[in-house]
Simulated scan of single mutants.
Amino acid sequence: MITDNTQKLKVPFFAGNAFTTGPYGGNPAVVVFLQDELPDEILLGIANNFNQSVITFVYPPTPEDTEVNGQTASFRIRWFSTLREIWLCGHGSFVAAASIFDTPGLVSAGVQSLRLKGKHNTLTARRVDDGQIELTLGAKDVERVTPAQEKEIGDIVKRSIGDIQILSVWTDKKFVLVEVEEKGEGDLASRKVDTDTLIETGYPSNIITAGSSDPDVAFISRVFHPAQGLAEDPVCGSAHGLLTPYWSKKQGFGDKQVSVKQVSPRGGGLDVKWNIQEGTVTLRVGLSFTAVLDWHAGRIRWLRYPNCPPYQHFW
């Protein structure tokens, strides 16, 4: 039960879109900054109040997580859906990094990279010269499922999105990756998907991917998490920890940076690079804006939004 003291809790939050440079595309995220630990049920309640796919909670660094050489700062981070805590969220981490970099006083002027330390994953975020942000996460290997599993999962996918050629099915235990062949340009993007049917695959997250007919785009994908309460993920950063090595091996682009797209209804794009020797994947994205709610001053401050005034009163 939420107490009166918790109801009066006032904390800054940020809202932004990752994987896009426009105000209405990409993947929306809310980032909440907390000074102290709160019970998980309170964090879950906050996530439900915002009713976004994922809420990112950022905590100040502990004494052992202070800045390293004046160039890297560490923060603790957790991600919650409306149902439960989740193990990783790429787009929430991007917006968290942008919020930290763009808010005066959170890090010193010389800091160019962040270490975002989750319970199960530690990510590195870096700001680059063109104003974009790079996020580095672990690369994931996938294994092909058995022929019987491939037929079973393929049949489920066909019932979900309609008749389509299934080329292969792979998994890393958390994601199932299904490569399909499009019937024509825009085929995968235009399909209506019965996401509830995908729960039958037995995997928390489902990736459907295909090679791209656009010579400037290496591959396309759509990602669904219906078992976790998110029907379709507009643009899933963590899925590209699997997709990038998979398509690099298949297409032979090695550790070259390539552009890719997620063709959900909102849509979004990013540049990806498989750092083969380090066993990581680097994602580079644009972010359209971040809105900062300042409870004490009674105002919203917009960041990374080209046509808005510095401050806008909301009461």
Rank of each mutant, 00 (worst) to 15 (best):
I133E: 04
Q112W: 02
Y311A: 10
P104M: 03
Y246K: 07
I161H: 00
A98H: 12
G252Y: 01
V217H: 01
S212E: 06
E278P: 00
N49W: 09
A47N: 06
R191T: 09
D163K: 08
Q312A: 14
D271G: 05
I166R: 02
G138C: 06
K173N: 15
S248K: 04
V68W: 08
R222H: 02
I86Q: 06
A239G: 08
I199Y: 03
L34N: 05
T195L: 10
L243H: 00
V281E: 09
L303E: 03
A18Q: 06
K192A: 11
D102K: 12
Q262I: 00
W274C: 08
P28N: 13
L34M: 13
P265A: 03
I166E: 02
L116A: 15
T171H: 11
A47W: 04
A97F: 03
A210Q: 06
L188P: 06
R299C: 05
F19Y: 08
Y246M: 09
V145H: 12
V30I: 15
W170R: 02
I2K: 01
I77N: 05
A218L: 05
E41F: 10
G105V: 00
I55W: 05
Q7S: 11
V263M: 06
P309S: 14
D294L: 01
L287P: 07
G110V: 02
G202T: 00
F19N: 10
S190N: 07
E278A: 14
N51R: 07
G211M: 00
W170Y: 03
F224Y: 14
L270F: 00
I42F: 10
T72L: 09
T62R: 11
D40E: 14
K250F: 02
L38T: 09
G22A: 09
T20P: 01
L177Q: 12
K192I: 04
S168A: 11
R284Y: 06
